[in-house]
Structure formats: C-alpha cells, structure tokens
Design a protein around this nucleic acid. Structure first.
Lengths: 168, 168
DNA sequence: GTCCCTTGTTTCGAATTCGAAGCATCGCTA
DNA sequence: TAGCGATGCTTCGAATTCGAAACAAGGGAC
C-alpha cells in the first residue's frame, strides 16, 4: 500500500514519539487533577471549555462540537447525556432545523468549569509550560498550528468517507 | 485548590490545544491505516515497535514495557494476551525472578511489524512531516524531548503517595 | 530463619469509546 | 409537490481501558 520508505529520519521520528508521549503523559496528569477537583473526565472538561470559551452564546450543535474536540458523535451523545443529567449543559432542538440539537452550557456548568480551571492550568503549566519557556511555547504553537489545520483539512484517507466534509 | 492564575497566556494555550488536537488527529489516522494494513490497534503497534526496535533482544518486562508506552499494567496484560494468542509475542517467566514476566516479539511479530510499518510511516509523513519540514521537525524534537523527560521524571503527583521505607 | 514491607503481575468490575445501523428531517430537482 | 440522496443525531453491540483488589515472590531487618 505504499511507496513510503521503511526507514524514517531519526530526527523526525524523535519528534513523533515525543509528541505521542508528551500528550499521553499530559493527559493522564490532567485527568487525575480533574478527578480530584471536580469529578469530571477530560472529555467533559473539553466539552465545557469548548462551550464556555469558544462558542457563541455558550452553545453549539452536536456535530460541530464533536468535530471541534476530535471525538465521535455517538460518544458525544453519551457524554452530553451525562452532562445534562448533572445539570451542566442543556440539549434543546435547534430552531429552524428539527433534526439538530443545540448543546448549551448552564450556569452550573460555568461554575464547575471555573472551579476546575485553576487546577487544570496549574498542571499544564507545571508539566508543559514550566519546562517550556514562553518563547519556546510560541515556537511550538507556530509549528503545530499549521499542522493541525493541515490535518483538519486532510481527512484520514478516504477509504470510506467517514468524517463529515465541509461545504464545497 | 490552587493559586494558579485563571487566565493563561494565549500563546501558550495555543500550543497546548494544538498539541492535543494534532495528536488526536494523528492517532485516528494511524489507527485507520493500521486497521487496513494489518488488523492491529495502535497500542499493539506501539508494543511491537517498542520490542522490535528499542529493546534488547526484542524483549522486556511487563512493567517496563507498560511504562515505556504510557499504558496501564492491567491494560498491557490484556493486550499481551491478545498478541500472544495471535503468535506475535511470547510471555515467559523471567529467569532469576519468579514474579516477573518477559515479553518477547516473535518472528511473526517482526514480520507483521515490517508489513505495517510502511503504511504507518506514510501516514505520519503525510499528516505530520509533510506540513512540517525537516528543519521544523528538528525544532519540534528539540522542544518536546526535554519536556517529555521532565514529565517522565515528574509523576502526575501521586494522589495516594506510596509508603516510604523508613522515616529518618 | 522469620516477619513484613515491596515489587511484579493478573483478575475483576465498571465505565467509556467507537463504528455501523437505524430514524427522522432537510432541501434540491423535476 | 413528490421523490430521494444528504444530513444530524441516537441506539446498539463489541472491544478496550483503567483502578482497586487479589496474589505471589523477593529481600532486608532482626
């Protein structure tokens, strides 16, 4: 299936493995902190944060929300159910489209997020930003942001078009 | 719970989110490719690769192996069971320590890894290294490798601190 | 040699994740 | 306006993950 070389540039390989490991370690650390502070999971934190800080009116459609955190739709249905049961978000039919559901963060959701955020920030700072000075973080962002955009624009490979495509 | 500031430097935050998203997207892409090429999961690929390329004699103890890929021990027990059943690794008692188990990659394991590696490389190259030129990958590695080592040396902050030997 | 804390691994149960299939609605086209 | 593929979400079943508890062997103190 491929013409790609068996051997990879060790330098690049180093970057790849560091990427995977750093993210795993960071995520584990964050999960533990979140469990202590607010009894929510990392995905739930992502959902609340996405709604509170990067969404108009604190609400989004399900599909959009799922894509924005790189998560499956069915998985989001499950998590949104949990969050709704806990009173942290609401799900309402989207006006103008009976199919669509709008997820909105509640005041309780914002409160929990605010309670949990300092610990999260502290962990990220201690694990990632402390050994990575500001100038370096800037470099990292400058490197990774274009890569992220490239990946978002390049779906995994169309064996079967799985992820939703954008408007042509 | 913390004195950490509520607001984070947007530049750093950008690096953090890009890190999480890039890794998620990359991992999904790799998983799909692995599924097509060799019917193994990402963790299984990690295990085989770790044994084949970064372990003496292609073998390691369970704990060491689990830690090296940032994976739970019980999870590794499960995966090692699957791999053993598939004939890709063997589990033998470690000579000199009856408790310990040594995991060793088999010829079939190496063969499968060799078969799967090109596709893996191709995906990583296309998704990560293509938009990230070699010089940049070098920068990325230079940034992340120390961070990774820092994280490895700084466990998640043990919630239940292990009992120490003796009080001085 | 014996006690007892450590270390290495597995078992167990609960929770979470994903893909595929199922439904219902939308909206374009004739 | 009827037909029909596209779109948005949920349900379902299967697989995988983790932490805690259980088990078993090692090894130091006495």
């Amino acid at each position: 299936m491929s013409h790609a070389p068996e051997s990879v540039d060790p330098v690049q390989l180093g970057a790849y493995f560091a990427l995977i490991e750093v993210t795993s370690l960071l995520r584990h650390a964050i999960e533990q902190q979140l469990r202590e502070d607010g009894s929510i999971s990392f995905v739930q934190f992502q959902i609340l944060a996405r709604l509170d800080r990067w969404s108009p009116d604190g609400s989004r459609g399900m599909t959009d929300l799922a894509d924005s955190i790189v998560f499956s739709r069915s998985g989001l249905t499950y998590q949104a159910g949990l969050l709704e049961k806990a009173g942290l978000v609401t799900r309402t039919p989207t006006p103008g489209d009976e199919r669509a559901t709008t997820v909105t963060i509640t005041d309780a959701g914002r409160a929990l997020l605010a309670k949990v955020f300092p610990g999260h920030t502290e962990v990220v700072t201690r694990m990632l930003f402390d050994p990575l000075p500001r100038a370096d973080a800037q470099t990292l962002a400058a490197l990774l942001t274009p890569v992220r955009d490239h990946m978002r624009a390049t779906p995994p490979r169309s064996a079967a078009p799985r992820r939703r495509k954008k408007s042509p």
